[in-house]
């Protein structure tokens, strides 16, 4: 009985943890060889969280948001404001703050937008995100406008890190984030494999039938929307601390594009997709950034993925691994 579920859950969680462990182990060596690549790994770890949230909404609930930058912006500006106006530089508090603020904003917006699906949901999210983005400019006396909010180094467990050299400081950021990401991956895994998670998939597949087996589809979508927003908000707060600068760019539509692209690249509807997508995205990005026309490449990739490999890289890997196992079994 439970066997059936085991099969359905797959080895997702274990593969996630193995990959994270490998990255955590090789990170210091990579950083030692090239700090630039060490920082790229830092980005990779940070963005997994937002992509997990996006995948919950898109892959599991069927709601495609072209405005996820909205919540990254909320998270980042929450951290920025906490520092600028309250003098708080504790990264734990920044994260707590961003969880709260993104949940509140998501609740207010979600009450309306989860009533729509498909193009309507996608564009409403894009529009709302653009509204917030423009507010960060228009209220420059609060947000610092284009110059943004510069932040000091964060402190952790109440310990100031100002006196450390940059390498140690970055290592602390990296391992703290890896720790957080691990927990959040585990929580998300429980969510998607819970009764709630299966209900979301059912709503995604067939809204009408879901309603006629007695599921309150708007409520379920609202929960998913809020969880997704919280995950994006956390990444926002982390990004603010990683860059030590918050500008409206984090809330711009191209940031939403980045989330969409990286998740598709990794694989939607597949639990390990966001992890794979985040790392590969940032590796490609750091190569591609040398040409300025990164967005063009990203757009072309999105189209190619949708047409040629809708399951993303994770699906390709999974097929590959399964074929190896299969041939092994036949051989043995």
């Amino acid at each position: 009985m439970v066997e059936r579920l085991k099969k359905a859950f797959g080895d997702d969680l274990r593969s996630n943890f193995i990959l994270l462990a490998i990255i955590a182990v090789i990170y210091p060596a990579i950083y030692a060889i090239s700090p630039g690549w060490g920082i790229v790994l830092g980005h990779g770890i940070t963005w997994i969280i937002a992509l997990l949230g996006f995948n919950l909404l898109f892959g599991y609930t069927g709601l495609l948001s072209f405005g996820h930058a909205l919540f990254l912006g909320i998270g980042a500006y929450t951290a920025g404001f906490m520092y600028k106006y309250l003098g708080i530089n504790s990264i734990e508090l920044h994260i707590l703050g961003s969880i709260l603020s993104s949940a509140v904003v998501a609740l207010a917006i979600g009450l309306v937008v989860v009533r729509y699906t498909r193009i309507f949901f996608a564009i409403f999210m894009l529009a709302i995100a653009q509204v917030f983005w423009s507010l960060y400019y228009k209220f420059y006396w609060i947000t610092g406008g284009t110059d943004g909010i510069k932040m000091a180094r964060f402190s952790i467990l109440g310990i100031s890190l100002e006196h450390l050299d940059f390498t140690t400081y970055h290592h602390i950021y990296f391992y703290f984030t890896t720790f957080l990401t691990t927990i959040l991956i585990y929580l998300m895994w429980r969510i998607v494999n819970s009764p709630f998670g299966l209900t979301l998939k059912a709503i995604r597949d067939n809204e009408v039938r879901a309603k006629f087996i007695g599921i309150d589809i708007y409520k379920m979508r609202l929960y998913a929307f809020i969880i997704s927003a919280i995950y994006a908000g956390i990444t926002g707060a982390l990004v603010a601390n990683h860059h030590r600068l918050v500008t409206p760019d984090i809330a711009y539509w191209t940031t939403s594009g980045k989330v969409v692209f990286a998740t598709l690249l990794g694989g939607t509807r597949i639990f390990i997709g966001p992890l794979i997508g985040s790392f590969i995205f940032h590796v490609i990005e750091s190569f591609a950034m040398r040409f300025i026309y990164w967005q063009l490449i990203m757009g072309a990739f999105i189209i190619a993925i949708v047409i040629l490999m809708p399951g993303g890289i994770a699906q390709i890997l999974r097929t590959f691994v399964e074929s190896i196992r299969h041939s092994g079994r036949i051989g043995g």
Binding site: L5, F9, W189, I191, N193, S194, P195, L198, I215
Partner: peptide
Amino acid sequence: KYQNKMTKTLD
């Protein structure tokens, strides 16, 4: 009425 339960996996 288990659809709100999200902290434990189905098994």
